[in-house]
């Protein structure tokens, strides 16, 4: 589904990602771990297509057989890429309902589908809300405005449920959450898992992986994937810390 080959990315002339390879197939869950500043969020931003920050100096990314780097941000989203933001931005005055209806309809239009009916949309909203345990009130509020950290992250998963992406990238979705909120978020992600879609979980902490069980764990260190393994790699990392990597590399 997603294939990254020899990716090099620089920010303001400083190389952050230095030759990264990654293969992701439908039905898989990949966890990317690593210390701060090793390029985890950069990778997420590059896949989603954030403009004006990243310089892709080398390498290629193909997604469902297409050259991903040719697509503008919204078309990547419409092709099924979803980014769960580490710091979801506040958009004052724009209600979540209005925001989601606009998104759903634009994606449908891209796919040549008619606009969603009000009834279907509301039904979908109800299901998605239930999934992450959002009280009905939340949806009448402005996007992320005045949300607590936990609410913002729940809201990201709620949107993921609404848009049903093929490839979801969750960037530090677990950071700043208490264990109850973490469970809700993780359960939401697990419930949305299927054979047709794939998930990349970017995290700093091993504890999220107790709830979202990954098929692969990659360790990102100084802009490269230095180690790949199964779930047990995460445990090993938790026990030995990232310093252990330095000696390994």
């Amino acid at each position: 589904m997603l294939s990254i080959k020899n990716l090099h990315v620089a920010i303001n002339g400083r190389e952050i990602i230095k030759g990264l390879d990654l293969e992701i197939h439908a039905g898989e869950v990949h966890a990317i771990m690593g210390p701060n500043g090793t390029g985890k969020s950069t990778l997420a931003g590059v896949i989603a297509g954030r403009e004006g920050i990243y310089d892709i100096t080398e390498g290629e990314i193909t997604y469902k057989g297409k050259n991903l780097l040719d697509l503008p941000i919204e078309d990547r989203a419409r092709e099924g890429i979803f980014l769960g933001f580490q710091y979801p931005v506040e958009i004052p005055g724009v209600s979540i309902t209005n925001f989601m209806r606009t998104a759903v309809n634009e994606i449908r239009q891209y796919k040549g589908l008619p606009q969603i009916s009000a009834g279907d949309f509301l039904k979908k909203m109800e299901e998605a809300k239930k999934l992450v345990g959002i009280q009905s009130k939340l949806t009448n509020r402005s996007v992320n405005e005045g949300f607590s950290g936990g609410e913002k992250k729940k809201n990201e998963i709620f949107q993921m449920a609404m848009l049903q992406p093929e490839l979801a990238i969750l960037d530090e979705t677990d950071s700043g959450l208490d264990i109850d909120a973490l469970k809700i978020v993780a359960n939401g992600v697990t419930a949305l898992r299927s054979d047709e879609n794939a998930t990349i979980v970017i995290t700093h902490y091993q504890r999220l992986l107790d709830f979202i069980v990954p098929d692969f764990v990659h360790v990102l260190f100084e802009g490269k994937i230095v180690k790949t393994g199964g779930k047990e790699l995460a445990l090993e990392l938790e026990a030995k810390g990232y310093d252990w990597l330095k000696s390994e590399v």
Binding site: A48, G49, R50, E51, P72, I73, E74, R76, A77, R78, F82, L83, F85, P88, V89, I91, P92, G93, V94, S95, N98, F99, M100, T102, A103, E106, I107, Y110, S142, V143, Q159, L163
Partner: peptide, 24 residues
């Protein structure tokens, strides 16, 4: 950041601005 957030959800830049301005 606001524009990127909207676009990442599949909303075109133009609709995003319409949304944000009306919200404003």
């Amino acid at each position: 950041d606001q524009l990127f957030y909207c676009q990442q959800r599949g909303i075109s830049a133009e609709s995003a601005i319409g949304l944000i301005v009306n919200g404003y």
